[in-house]
């Protein structure tokens, strides 16, 4: 039975990956057409530096999406990470690494909370993580008093901001790009190298069947939320590094990260997707933002175009899947 179910699913995922990849290269080609110097390695590296937080968020979000859920709290985790880092480090470079460790602990705790609420209290993830989004944002605001407070030292900022110059071949190498590659490799290994991905897909597809097949459904779910939160902490560290402290650092990122996965071909409510859906989807979405910036369209219409692309991308995937089956 698993044979007959698996084959079309793998097939569909492969098609989807191609779609995300093709979309990214298509969009980047248009960027280059408008602004040829984006072909220079230096500018591509800068593109990666800015896209890194969204790509990492999406790569964490995909874990939850595969299990059939959503994580709406990732934007709040980003905001919380940035504000907490500034308050706890308060400009002292010696505190940076211990605070970063603490931030990951907090992230894990938030993910654990989401996971437990979903797995044991049976609250649908969209509501559970919406609740977390509210209380966590409120907590970040209450803690900082409503406006950015404290200070981030150079060595923390460097993670998202520093770039090595005069690197052979690529010109500049941002530290964020390096972090991006390492984190994505880790998340890829976690999903596809350890068999977790198969379990997650099974849970997302049909939790009852997965349970009967001996898969620990609750544990699989909880793991997904923890990983998503940890990814969000990483994104928060990079974002805080890139542009500094603010209390709205993460607003809107939750929907962007979900949209990225979907554009990349992952299916909501589970059943299909790979880490590549998240990576190429997020890069596509970010390329779209950059393109709209470069075209100088009124800001407001950029929202509209984003919405249109979202519907078209998902509509196309739905249509192709239906035609094949």
């Amino acid at each position: 039975m698993s044979e007959t179910l698996n084959t079309p699913r793998v097939e569909a995922a492969r098609i989807a990956v191609n779609a995300g990849l093709v979309l990214f290269f298509g969009l980047y080609a248009v960027i280059v057409l408008i602004q040829p110097n984006y072909l220079e390695p230096g500018l591509f590296m800068n593109f990666l530096r800015r896209a890194a937080p969204l790509v990492i968020l999406a790569s964490g979000q995909i874990y939850v999406i595969l299990t059939g859920g959503f994580d709406l709290s990732v934007g709040a985790v980003v905001t919380f990470t940035v504000t907490a880092a500034a308050l706890l480090i308060n400009g002292d470079p010696g505190a940076t690494w211990s605070v970063i460790a603490l931030l990951y602990l907090m992230g894990a705790a938030i993910g654990l909370f989401n996971g437990l609420v979903v797995a044991y209290l049976k609250v649908p993830s969209i509501i559970a993580t919406l609740g977390t989004m509210l209380w966590l944002n409120g907590l970040a605001l209450a803690w900082s008093g409503g406006a950015a407070r404290g200070d981030l030292p150079e060595n923390f900022r460097d993670l998202g901001r520093f770039q090595w110059r005069d690197v052979p071949l690529i010109g500049t190498l941002p530290m964020a790009a390096l972090v991006l590659v390492v984190v994505c490799a880790l998340l890829w290994w976690g999903l596809h190298g350890m068999g977790y991905g198969k379990r997650a897909l099974a849970v997302g597809d049909n939790p009852r069947a997965a349970e009967l097949a001996g898969i620990p459904v609750a544990r699989t779910r909880i793991t997904a939320f923890v990983i998503s939160s940890l990814a969000a902490v990483t994104a928060g560290i990079l974002l805080g590094g890139f542009s500094g402290v603010s209390v709205n650092a993460g607003s809107g990122l939750e929907l962007q990260s979900i949209a990225a996965c979907v554009i990349g071909g992952a299916m909501l409510l589970g059943g299909r997707g790979t880490i590549w859906c998240a990576i190429w989807g997020a890069l596509s979405l970010f390329a779209l933002f950059t393109l709209l910036n470069l075209m100088g369209l009124p800001q407001a219409l950029r929202d509209s175009i984003q919405g249109l692309i979202l519907i078209l991308a998902v509509g196309l995937t739905a249509w192709r899947t239906r035609r094949r089956s």
């Binding site: 407001a300 929202d303 509209s304 919405g307 249109l308 979202l310 519907i311 998902v314």
Partner: peptide, 23 residues
């Protein structure tokens, strides 16, 4: 009829409307 996940479909139409309205 489009087979699009409702979350994405309505997020999309919402964004389109929001943009046109603001503009």
């Amino acid at each position: 009829f489009g087979g699009i996940n409702p979350l994405i479909a309505t997020l999309g139409t919402g964004l389109i409307l929001q943009g046109v309205l603001s503009a």
